[in-house]
Amino acid sequence: MRKVLAAAVVVTCLVMLSALSSAAMLEPVTIKYVNKPITADNADIFNSAKAQSVGLISVSQSNHLGSGAVPAGDTKKLQTNARYIFDLSAEAPAMTVKAVHNGKTVAIQVTWTDKTENVETAIDSFRDSVALMFPTAASEFNPSPLMGSKGEPVNIWQWRADWQAEKEGRRHLEARQPQTEGIHVGYSDAIMKGEFPGKPSAESTTLDYVAEGYGTITRLKEQPVKASGHYKDGKWTVVFLRDINRASGSDAELLPGKNTFMNVAVWNGQNRDVNGSKAISTVWIPLHIEAAK
């Protein structure tokens, strides 16, 4: 049975978190100004940016869907009703971030370690994924790192490995669910998917959300965030792109010359990570956007 360290911290312990989220000790990540066109396939844009490491802590869920749940005995020792628990003994991915902008487009590159490439979301499979979270309004004060709170919304950009694989034609339905081939597909399919599309578009790899606390995450009507990821040598590298001007008030305000904050979450499909089961940066990372030159 896996041991959760006695030092494990309960996520719902707000006192502890507010202390953590003061974030004063963290070195800011700088979104560096570059005088170059920024596109998803231009790797050179990050040459001048400094790779900054981001510390992640693993979060376990007591009602985890897989075998990796927090052992009941251990949660009892913690004397808590928590459903989500910081698991300091679990290995968290090592992550670095690089970011640039050219006055028109912002590009944020995240690289993290992951021993396995998981590109399926089906009956019992779970994908790798990464998300960046920002306050929607840039200010000196940060909203709650627990996905914002009422009146203090956050903007979340989530890239999904399954959609990336689908875009690249590496994903087939019959491999991930039973009774697929030769079955008639009725008209209801088009009606349902017209009403509730799985992805914003066939080419999507990313979702742009707004949230005001747990359980409030909502897809934005406009989906201005694009991302592209690839897996190589035990590492995922994902590059997020967005216009520096935001599409709506629910998108993150990224103003050249100003500061804001960022938080990161990583899901490992191999661990059946989904929902609150993930590794998170836990504290707001100060983000400085260099002035355009």
Binding site: L173, Q177, T180, K193
Partner: peptide, 8 residues
């Protein structure tokens, strides 16, 4: 349940 993804 005659849609794609609903076969099973």
């Amino acid at each position: 349940t005659t849609g794609r993804g609903q076969e099973y």
